[in-house]
Design a protein around this nucleic acid. Sequence first.
DNA 1: TACCAATATGTTTATAATAACATAACGACA
DNA 2: TGTCGTTATGTTATTATAAACATATTGGTA
Lengths: 112, 112
Amino acid sequence: MTDFFGFKPGCKVWLEKDGAVFGEGLYDLLSRIERTGSIAAAASEMGMSYRAAWGKIKVSEKKWQIRLVNTRVGGDTGGGASLTGEARMLLARFRELREGVNGLLIVHKFEK
Amino acid sequence: MTDFFGFKPGCKVWLEKDGAVFGEGLYDLLSRIERTGSIAAAASEMGMSYRAAWGKIKVSEKKWQIRLVNTRVGGDTGGGASLTGEARMLLARFRELREGVNGLLIVHKFEK
DNA sequence: TACCAATATGTTTATAATAACATAACGACA
DNA sequence: TGTCGTTATGTTATTATAAACATATTGGTA
């Protein structure tokens, strides 16, 4: 997606349901939580505060009316977090949509 | 673009160059100016103030470093506005990109 | 010449989104 | 039992964006 008649085409996709939005930011955050097993680590990687990451999750859970993250507090590691099944499902759907659109944009470019 | 595994896929496209962005809002505004021959009429149609429309145009012209709108003030009609060639070109490119992506999204959906 | 509709801007207010700061609780382990 | 890293929240400050308000200018036409 480098050039489009001299301009760079931008594209942003998201999943929506009843006003609740699942976009790139939430996708990125949840992916990192899944990989690292920690909200704090995920936030740190993204250069965002734990407070901000936690807040984003809470707001999203309220909007989607589902749990996205299972957490545990205390213990030797201090605690941790993992994704719920619903969250993994949303991640998969989003990845699918995004990759599809990106791929098609490239096709569109070369077909010109 | 009605359904994607129970979710509604959202998509937003834009043209970019050196940080300057041409998106749906500017497209809509300029289209209406082209059709009505007036910034005030275009703004009114969109339920936005003349001040806001004018400001958006000015900021965009500064970012893109080109003139988007030719204006004339005074006279029997009070004045008016029309698009520059560069603006019409941007409109065409944007329309093309947007329609292309929308079409491909539909294809993507039915191919599933 | 007075009027009118549209362009042209400066200034202020309100709203929202984001960031920053601060503090508490938890629980395995040394 | 004290430490440490993580989750959990409330509160405040800062920024960014948008909306609202106000006023001046222009130039055909009646």
